[in-house]
């Protein structure tokens, strides 16, 4: 005869209640209290045989047949099934969190903000390029290619071009996430701290944090970005 595991109950004395912590995460279990005992039911086959349950001390396993409780393996009933009020185990066993530790002196510890490599694929939308190599293309480019782009002169050698589709030019590619611009293939080491780091680094939301490399960044104000046009490029670089 196939055993019906739903009939199995486990009994434990209330004083040993804390041992149930290790099976509290089985959310199918129901639990009820009776005088000095706690009853648990709704196990499945795997759970009954598991180390987690077997290793709990002071437990007794019963099988309920026709409203009579038989100790497991016994043919004589132990007593009648009592009337119990069942509740889900996670509701019946509450978790206590330890109090805040006022004597914790580790508050001077800090994390280093840095970038780490990531496997996730990102769409590059920012290009750092050499103005001399880019000049020939941009001064003769079709207006439609330049229209969606904005740019910023970084120094006498390089310019940052933001927007997509990117120009078909050689340069260092970056990807943008919110107010951050990261080199492709890198992201923040602590993603959870993203908003906090952003607040620490910038004063207003018009600013962008441009990570030039894994450990250095530069703040760019969006108002400094100019639409990329042939005239803007030529006049900035003082070309004819």
């Amino acid at each position: 005869m196939a055993e019906n595991f739903a009939d199995h109950l486990v009994q434990i004395e209330t004083v040993h209640k804390e041992h149930l912590g290790q099976i509290r995460h089985w959310d199918n279990l129901k639990i009820a209290t009776e005088a000095n005992y706690i009853w648990i039911k709704n196990f499945n086959e795997l759970q009954l045989a598991s180390v987690e349950l077997q290793s709990i001390p002071f437990t007794k396993t019963f099988v309920c047949i026709d409203n009579l409780l038989f100790p497991k393996g016994s043919l004589l009933p132990f007593k009648k099934m009592p009337n119990l009020l069942w509740t889900p185990i996670e509701r019946a066993l509450s978790i206590e969190l330890s109090n805040f530790n006022h004597n914790f002196f580790g508050i001077h510890q800090s994390v280093e903000i840095k970038l780490i490599p990531t496997e996730a694929e990102q769409k590059a939308t920012v290009l750092l390029l050499n103005i001399h190599t880019a000049s020939n293309y941009i001064s003769n480019a079709s207006a439609i290619r330049l229209k969606p782009l904005k740019w910023l002169l970084i120094d006498t050698e390089s310019a940052l071009i933001i927007g997509e589709p990117m120009l078909p030019l050689d340069g260092k590619a970056f990807w943008q996430k919110g107010n951050f611009i990261f080199p492709v293939g890198l992201h923040l080491a602590f993603l959870l701290l993203e908003k906090i780091i952003e607040k620490k680094l910038i004063l207003s939301h018009t600013q962008l944090i441009w990570w030039i490399s894994e450990c250095s960044y530069c703040i760019i104000d969006r108002t400094m970005l100019r639409p990329l046009t042939i005239s803007s490029w030529k006049q900035t670089l003082k070309m004819d």
């Binding site: 001064s139 003769n140 480019a141 079709s142 207006a143 046009t229 042939i230 005239s231 030529k234 006049q235």
Partner: peptide
């Protein structure tokens, strides 16, 4: 129109 032409030609390719 010469002035206008010069301004516009700033934005011309080639």
């Amino acid at each position: 129109l010469q002035i206008e032409f010069d301004v516009e030609s700033e934005n011309h390719p080639f």
